[in-house]
Design a protein around this nucleic acid. Structure first.
Lengths: 224, 224, 224, 224
DNA sequence: AATGAATGAGGCTTCATTCAT
DNA sequence: AATGAATGAAGCCTCATTCAT
């Protein structure tokens, strides 16, 4: 087991721990976590003040520090389990199923993946924003994320993609890393458009998704 | 002239003013601007301290405030002209040429556009990072950027894209907004990969660009 | 109820609130208020530094700002209730009694009034100094004080003075405003002499007061 | 010659020096002095900034310090000659004349004195405000003023007043210091009313003065 | 467990003053 | 003589964190 896998395990642990604690979590603790999530997402970690979080959570300033040793601890308590939920599925049974369960086509696979991640982002918008905004500023996080992403995602997706290449569903001449980037770019671009950039627009998710996948699969070129 | 165009003009003005001032700018002022740019990019606006900036610039802390009334002023002095350089070209003669000068194919157009913006991002990496990180947190900026982007970019690109659709070079069945998003997603994804996510990798820019454009134009589908 | 009366009520409210809080006031808070009062009186608001106040009060500088949002807030927390105590009595039951309870002569009335305000000034010397020194520099205060003074004091005293004029105890040929100014000038002059200008002198308050009132009532003219 | 007289001489010297310099004073210097006077009067010495003064005077920040070593120096350059003009006349030929030139009555003397000082205050309102506001906060000034006032004024006025007492124009039973205070209180009260407290009122100076002097001489008592 | 008063380090900003031009 | 960029000390205020209750 390499370092990357160790971190993932850490996150998963924290995730499970969090899940576990969620049961015994005080009402106050839950409120602190929610308030912090909202405020971090809204103004960024550095510009958020613990006193504001306390106020929004309806607890005393000191209470936060009874549960989280430092402000950074509070941030990590939000990010770590979210990381696990974000990356974790790629390594768990559910996802393994996605891999084994032979989606007839790459398109179906893409659609399932997009939709799955879209739903996660939609339901955890604040947390996703925090991750995107804060990861670049906290070296420990940055390193972990980078390692996990580079190391694991590439390797897992490579298998999937090579699988479809073999089946003749993907153009074998295209370099796998480029395909992965292509996939992620469009996934992120689509989800960001719908949830962050123009959230007020009345999106037909299904249709957008299909159009996007069509462009990905068949390209823009006219038949002219 | 609508509000959006007014902002653009504002930025352009500030840009020119900045250009103009650049001549008379004190050595110290230049150093302050550079130091601030680096530190804002590295730790974010909120977490950057003016004393650190002063130290890095090799000036007294007070000197910063002789040139920039507020810390925020300093941020805007970095962002505003960059905005102009980022969005401005889309509306100036150079870009008009890009539109008129009939790129034979959409692919050539894409390539020119990608390369042009890639070079800008490469040469102004810190500033681009600052813009991406700070715009979401500063409502005035956010509103302006959103308006400019939604309003202008869409309208300009629509003309270009419709143009190519008419020529039969783009699939007329695809909705123009989706094409624009597709284009931007892949452009941002590619540039971010090369400059931010894996800057240490030894990229063959030309080749990546071509692969990406190929995927965009012809899609991933195998010939199977 | 006009604006002036509203301010007075505001002050009275703050006064009562202060009284009320005085019970729950932390020892530290009391010390901050005392230290601030002394230092403001000694060097003036603008020249007083919060760090000096903190030091004199024996608390951390931050502690001041936990109780008073701003330095100005601290000033107002000293001035507002004092204003109420300074002007308020003129409108309350006690003072109403002074009006109704028929002092046999204007001289007795003057004596009671002088003595009453002298005692207040003596016991609140620092605060009175602050009021005199700071009111001119803070427009909000200046306006309020001016309105209250012009509007209310004049009107109340007019009744009293006209009352004594009718009884033949005051020269009806003298304009009431001049009488009021005459009264206040001499009251302020006497009190200032004893408490501010020559506080080290061993004053026989009773005697000075009587001499002053004698001069006011019968004038300086010799019998020659 | 005692210490008090030495200070007076100092001021007079500075006054004369100033008069003298006034001729060679640069336009800029004059503008600095005027700007400083206005701003000190308006916001107080401590709250006034040299840069604001420079701006109002239309000179560079550094220029002030070419003429006045420190900000305090600038204050003293305004106050010292004004002190001389304020107290000086009491000791000069002009004033000696006032003493010798036998005003028929004390009332005439009072009227001349009041009017003379009223005119001075009216024409130098800002400076008088500065003196009143700043003297209490600057120990050197405070000591000087106090010494001069206590020491000299008392002694000079004593002669005048005793003079009138002997002539039977003033009640010999009244203590001279009380008479002096009475005189000053009413003079200050009247002038302050007209110039500072209610400057917008349309005063009939002559009449107010006469009413005041009448009250001082014959008192308020009705003939009843 | 919870509170909230207290802390003091550090942040942004102002300002009197200096000095090279 | 005049300028105005530069300085750095000091000012006001915020904030994460601690601790007695």
């Amino acid at each position: 087991m390499n370092a990357t896998e160790k971190w993932l395990e850490e996150w998963l642990e924290e995730w499970l721990e969090q899940e576990h604690k969620a049961g015994k979590m005080t009402e106050k603790q839950r409120r602190i976590l929610m308030a912090a999530t909202e405020i971090f997402a809204e103004k960024g970690y550095a510009a958020a003040s613990t006193s504001e979080i306390a106020q929004k959570a309806g607890v005393a300033e000191g209470t936060i520090f009874r549960h989280y040793k430092t402000k950074k601890d509070l941030l990590l308590s939000i990010i770590a389990p979210a990381m696990a939920k974000l990356f974790g599925p790629l390594f768990l049974r559910d996802f393994a199923k996605m891999l084994d369960q032979p989606y007839e086509t790459y398109e179906e696979f893409l659609k399932a993946l997009f939709y799955n991640r879209y739903e996660y982002a939609r339901d955890n918008l604040s947390i996703v924003k925090i991750i995107i905004q804060e990861v670049p500023f906290h070296p420990e996080l940055r390193e972990k994320v980078k390692a996990v992403a580079e190391d694991m995602i590439i390797s897992r997706f490579r298998r999937i993609i090579d699988n479809y290449k073999e089946k003749g569903m993907l153009d074998s001449n295209l370099p796998t890393p480029a395909i992965i980037r292509f996939m992620i770019s469009n996934m992120v671009g689509l989800v960001a458009s719908m949830l962050v950039i123009m959230p007020e627009k009345d999106w037909d998710v299904e249709k957008e998704l299909e159009t996007t996948i069509q462009m990905m699969m068949r390209g823009l070129a006219g038949k002219g």
